[in-house]
Amino acid sequence: MALAFTSAVPQVVSISPAARSIPANTLRLYVTFDHPARGVVSTRDLRLLDDAGRTIDGAFMDFGQDLWSPDGRRLTVLFDPGRVKRGVEGDGESAAPLQVGHSFTVEVSGKRFHYQVTPAVRTAINPQTWRLALPKAESRDALTVTFDREMDDALLRDQLEVEDARGRLQAGQTTTSSSGRVWSWRPKHGWRTGDYRLIVGNSLEDVSGNRVGEALDHEVGSPDAARESVTVPFTVKRHRE
């Protein structure tokens, strides 16, 4: 009887951002593998290629120790902030590894992911610009939030929560779109008529490292934004209300 062997080499299952177009000042990438890859794959195994297929040297930060999730399946890779953030290392616009209007490719473990580069996003996140699609009472329909920019997927899954008018956190399931612009949350139990709040954690960032009330490129010497959660109120109504 023939025996079937499974390769122990970790395979890439996704990379985030997953959108086809990302800002020139994108700060980080997440590479997820099908099983633990810590000690097998490292940041040094990633290559950034320009639209002519040439390797862009020094694009990623090398800390000497890779940034892995606790389960060893997700590798966080940072673009060198000195080449992304203005005023850190020369002219951030010209030094940035991602140039507006060009395409680039990330190569890792034999797979390639292609992107188009759009203008940098250098403004703070403003929840007032978010569009909420509200569910109806007595349903388990999803609350859907659409953003004005690509959000950091890992933080998006961790930094948004829903609570009721009495401040009780609600149990539910979160999903995000591949574009990084849509977050959906479906409650474990049906919605009740009444007021709710979307809780926005103080660590939420877009793919460029901007936070609520604070752009990554804020003026040198200016005070940091208050590290407090903000809330977005919404009301769930019956069908006929």
Rank of each mutant, 00 (worst) to 15 (best):
P10T: 11
V12H: 07
A18D: 12
A18W: 01
A19W: 08
S21C: 03
L27M: 13
L27H: 04
V31A: 09
T32R: 14
H35F: 12
G39M: 10
G39Q: 12
V40G: 01
R44E: 10
D45R: 05
I56K: 10
G58C: 02
F60I: 09
D62M: 09
W68E: 09
S69P: 09
L75A: 05
T76I: 05
D80P: 00
P81D: 08
G82A: 12
R83C: 01
V84G: 01
K85N: 06
V88A: 05
D91E: 11
A95E: 12
A95F: 06
A95P: 00
G101K: 10
V106Y: 03
S109L: 13
S109R: 14
R112F: 07
F113L: 03
Y115H: 03
Y115S: 03
V117W: 08
A120Y: 08
A120F: 10
A124K: 06
N126K: 12
P127R: 08
Q128H: 11
A133M: 10
K136D: 11
R140H: 07
R140G: 07
T144Y: 06
R157I: 02
E163C: 08
A165Q: 14
R166Q: 15
A171P: 00
T176Y: 01
S179M: 04
S179N: 01
V182H: 03
W183M: 02
W183G: 03
S184K: 14
R186I: 08
K188P: 00
K188C: 00
H189K: 14
W191Q: 07
T193G: 07
D195Q: 13
I199M: 15
G201M: 09
S203W: 05
E205H: 03
E205F: 00
D206C: 02
E214D: 09
D217L: 01
D217P: 03
D217S: 10
H218C: 00
E219F: 09
E219Q: 11
S222C: 04
T231E: 14
V232I: 15
P233R: 05
F234P: 12
V236Q: 09
H239S: 13
